[in-house]
């Protein structure tokens, strides 16, 4: 087998928390946003990153692209050490790795027109031939009207802005596309359009994708493999069907059972695996298995020993002392 396109090892990001008094500033602890993530992504593959709000998905994405500096760990992209790359190497990497940001409002410069936003990458790289046509084609592809070239971001609805972000990222034909909740603001028909588009582009340009989403049914449509994150770590990792039909981590199982199904009768009667206790805090993660305070299976060993992410049952990797295959949907 060939080398993975992206190799992430022991990636860690801690954000210090301060207490601000009038004259002094004292560090009170740190948010362990990403706390030892390991992940290999093969060329052409689409990996889904799912997990509770605040578990570190966006931070992981920003670390991989080095939009923020890591506390420790390594990221190797196409043989290049991203975290130690110099400015010139980083500039080249930026073209090959593009991101679509989670917040479609904050990530588009309000003073730039659609032409300037979507065409920004082309201009940076001096590819100005047929400029309007190329930008117009990109708008077409994401289902926006090409007459919008001279409009500004505030004139668009939430979903329309998210598509502008996708068009902008695609303009420079990256190898790796990181999509942070790319369809969460879209209605389902446009969502289907964008997902189909991503599948087409992936095939056409051999795109490798990291797809962050909280909507498990969307992830299922598009990803080859799925990584489930909990409190800064990956707790289960496997191929799509494995994760969906034979999940083994109690957290994954709770997550699956919470997915709303668009059928009012079925939906209101479904059994859910409740997540007990308080939501976790990355300020002081629990001892042992980080999931133990909310786990319906936890035993003494879970409080003291941190289960490593290794292959157990069900044919995929899982970080749990008591993995059991279950299909809860």
């Amino acid at each position: 087998m060939s080398e993975p396109l992206l190799i992430v090892r022991d990636l860690v990001k801690h954000f210090p928390q301060y207490e601000q008094r009038i004259l002094t500033k004292r560090q009170t602890g740190s948010v362990r946003a990403v706390d030892g993530v390991n992940l290999d992504v093969m060329a052409g593959e689409t990996v889904g990153l799912v997990g509770e709000s605040g578990c570190g998905k966006s931070t992981t994405a920003r670390l991989i692209l080095r939009l923020i500096e890591a506390t420790s760990g390594s990221v190797i992209f196409d043989g290049v050490d991203v975290l130690n790359a110099d400015d010139e190497a980083l500039r080249r990497l930026r073209r090959q790795m593009q991101i679509v940001f989670q917040d479609p409002y904050a990530s588009l410069n309000p003073r730039l027109s659609v032409r300037e936003i979507v065409g920004e990458g082309l201009r940076i790289w001096g590819e100005t031939a047929d400029f309007d046509k190329r930008v117009g084609d990109l708008l077409d592809r994401v289902g926006l009207n090409r007459r919008f070239l001279d409009r500004y971001p505030h004139e668009f609805s939430g979903g329309q802005r998210q598509r502008l972000g996708i068009a902008r990222a695609l303009a420079v034909r990256p190898k790796l596309l990181v999509l942070d909740e790319p369809v969460s603001a879209l209605d389902v028909s446009v969502q289907a359009q964008v997902l189909n588009l991503l599948v087409d582009l992936r095939d056409e340009f051999d795109l490798t994708m990291i797809f962050i989403a909280h909507d498990l049914s969307v992830v299922r449509q598009i990803c080859d493999r799925v990584a489930v994150m909990y409190l800064g770590r990956i707790v289960e990792l496997g191929d799509r069907d494995g994760i969906y039909t034979r999940s083994t981590h109690p957290y994954t199982q709770a997550l699956m059972s919470a997915v709303p199904v668009p059928d009012p009768v079925h939906e209101r009667e479904r059994e859910r695996i409740p997540l007990e206790g308080d939501p976790p805090s990355p300020l002081n993660p629990p001892s042992g298995c980080r999931f133990h305070p909310r786990c319906f299976k936890a035993e003494t060993i879970c409080r003291t020993e941190d289960p490593p992410l290794i292959e157990r049952v069900g044919g995929h990797e899982c970080a749990c002392h008591f993995p059991e295959v279950s299909n809860v949907t």
Binding site: A192, N196, V259, H266
Partner: peptide, 17 residues
């Protein structure tokens, strides 16, 4: 019809309008 569902069979493409 465009809706992806967790409890349904996966087709290659989603129906879109």
């Amino acid at each position: 019809r465009s809706m992806p569902r967790l409890d349904s069979v996966i087709g290659d493409r989603l129906t879109q309008i």
